[in-house]
């Protein structure tokens, strides 16, 4: 098995850029006293939620293997990594925005939005894996955008 240069660049380059972004982000947040207990609370909660999403992804991938679909190791690890990182980032972003808004987010709308994102990711990842066509992932962008907009739309102050 040969060394895949593109894969190595993506893997280590992504990690280096990710760590740099994280480090600079923390440095900027520190200047505005942003690394406080609310920050820890938000990111601990989002990390915990992301583990549930990762668990669901592992179950789905295991089910695909049980149904006889042949999966490559890189593909499986890639899907698990994307699900983990994306759910960590998205839930952290939703929680941060919610905490920063004077008008609260509507819980039912957040649940609806997150369900749309989870379902579309699930459906399009399965389609991509089963057909071997990764362009299906691009098709998941519109429903994901709708889901995120729906989740992040605050409750109107007049509504009770």
């Amino acid at each position: 098995m040969g060394v895949q240069i593109g894969g190595l660049i993506g893997l280590y380059g992504g990690a280096v850029f990710g760590i740099l972004g994280w480090w600079f982000g923390r440095r900027m947040a520190k200047k505005q006293r942003g690394l406080d207990e609310l920050h820890s609370h938000i990111w601990q909660k989002s990390r915990s939620i992301s583990w549930f999403c990762t668990l669901a992804a592992i179950y789905v991938l295991f089910s695909l293997v049980a149904f006889g679909i042949k999966l490559k190791v890189a593909m499986v690890l890639g899907v698990i990594m994307i699900v983990h990182m994306a759910s960590w980032g998205i839930t952290g972003m939703i929680l941060s925005i919610n905490m920063n808004m004077t008008e609260p987010l509507k819980p039912s709308r957040v649940k609806f939005g997150i369900s749309i994102v989870a379902m579309s990711l699930f459906i399009f990842i399965i389609l991509s894996i089963t057909t071997g066509n990764w362009w299906f992932l691009i098709a998941s962008i519109p429903p994901n955008t709708i889901g995120l907009i729906s989740a992040l739309t605050p409750e109107r102050s007049g509504e009770d």
Binding site: G34, L38, H41
Partner: peptide, 16 residues
Amino acid sequence: VGVSRQSIIAIESGKY
């Protein structure tokens, strides 16, 4: 108090 403005907003509104 040494926190971000976001924390004060969240505490004031009862979200945190």
